[in-house]
């Protein structure tokens, strides 16, 4: 599935094998939370980078010890109306200091991208429409934000303080 990241739509360099499949030797790959929990030590010794597919009904705070090991955490939006992963993203960035890629997967819509970006999600699994409909532009539709965000852009309190 195409990936929107850094303002461009491109291919996904990560693999996402099922629990039954063996992992590629050195290519970056994600695992389910269940697999991570059972194979944690072996996975941590692996040469290739490791990522985690985090379901949206598990608190990221349960992974506080582990987040530094992941190059990628994927978050799930099974339906666009299910907004649990927004809170997961903010907790991962602000509370746990996760610095790797945070990727939205599932029912990702153009008009949600900026909310996701402000919560710290920096990559988006998108459909083929993303290019035709210029989805990257959605990230630039606002430059005033009423809340602090996790994307490095200032929020209104700082803008006001700067005059």
């Amino acid at each position: 599935m195409p990936l929107l990241k850094d303002g461009r739509v491109g291919d996904d360099p990560w693999r996402h094998p099922d629990d039954a499949e063996s992992l590629p030797d050195d290519a970056p790959a994600t695992v389910s939370l269940a697999r991570w929990r059972t194979e944690r030590d072996a996975l941590a010794r692996r040469a290739g980078r490791i990522g985690l597919r985090l379901p949206n009904d598990v608190s990221p705070l349960e992974l506080a010890e582990d987040v530094g090991r992941f190059g990628l955490i994927t978050l799930a939006f099974p339906r666009f109306t299910d907004g649990r992963a927004y809170s997961q993203a903010r907790l991962l960035r602000a509370r746990l200091g996760f610095r790797g890629e945070l990727r939205a997967t599932g029912n990702v819509l153009r008009d949600q991208l900026l909310f996701m970006r402000r919560c710290g999600i920096d990559a988006f699994e998108v459909g083929e429409r993303a290019l035709a409909e210029n989805w990257p532009a959605a990230l630039g539709e606002f430059d005033v934000f009423y809340q602090p965000g996790e994307d490095g852009r200032p929020w209104i309190a700082r803008q006001r303080a700067a005059g």
């Binding site: 109306t81 907004g83 927004y86 909310f115 996701m116 009423y146 809340q147 209104i156």
Partner: peptide, 13 residues
Amino acid sequence: RQWSTLHPEFSFL
């Protein structure tokens, strides 16, 4: 009002 306006975390409660 300001804090809740287009709150990125709480727009899909």
